[in-house]
């Protein structure tokens, strides 16, 4: 489906043909689901977030201006739905510390409460589940951008435009997200020592 044909579908939907929207759902639902899964870290929640993102997109389709790609637009809606969900969810299970981030923004360093941590420290190799666990330890802003990049396939410029951020900020957040994620995986034994042990512990930890 080209951008032009997507635009035609959107016009059809806006013109009253609600069924035309299904084509867009079919095209993006899998990625949106996986994106939500990485954002919220729970399959049931990701299921709900995916539905909510598409309903929101459908409801506000008339505000889609077409100056960005539809994919960029729907991924932004999806990540925002997930962020709202995470914010509204009770944070009782987490102890939050505010740490100064190196771009002068307050970032939440969420430390999982040890009493609720499942016995997942025994994983031998990096699995999808361990990456998901690691993603949960990232500050929301870092996770959102990394997910937009990796799953949404968005460029730094597209992410910057979608979130009103400088490209430099996008770049450094993605870098810090990766570093933190790798440190988590290393500490929990999910990256073999042959990978990254020295490099990851090198200077510049945030």
């Amino acid at each position: 489906m080209t951008e032009v044909s997507e635009k035609k579908i959107i016009e059809k939907v806006l013109g009253g043909d609600a069924n035309a929207f299904e084509e867009l759902v079919l095209k993006y639902e899998k990625t949106v689901y996986n994106l939500a899964l990485r954002m919220v870290g729970d399959r049931d929640d990701a299921f709900d977030m995916t539905q909510e993102a598409f309903i929101k997109a459908y409801g506000s389709l008339s505000s889609f201006r077409g100056d960005s790609k539809f994919s960029v637009w729907i991924y932004r809606i999806a990540t925002n739905v997930c962020l709202d969900f995470l914010r509204s969810k009770s944070r009782k299970q987490q102890v939050s510390l505010t740490v100064s981030d190196d771009d002068d923004e307050d970032a939440q360093l969420d430390i999982p409460d040890p009493s609720s941590a499942p016995e997942q420290q025994l994983m031998q190799k990096m699995s999808m589940q361990s990456v998901e666990e690691g993603l949960k330890t990232l500050p929301d802003k870092q996770r959102q951008i990394l997910v937009m990049r990796e799953l949404g396939g968005m460029s730094y410029a597209e992410i910057g435009a979608a979130l009103s951020l400088e490209e430099g900020t996008v770049k450094s957040r993605i870098f810090r997200a990766r570093k933190r994620l790798c440190t988590f995986l290393l500490d929990s034994g999910n990256i073999p020592d042959s990978l990254a042990s020295k490099g990851m512990k090198g200077g510049g930890e945030t």
Partner: peptide, 14 residues
């Protein structure tokens, strides 16, 4: 090793 680790994580996320 940083490159390998970043690449592995990226691949996993995809």
């Amino acid at each position: 090793s940083v490159y390998d680790a970043f690449s592995a994580v990226s691949e996993q996320m995809h």
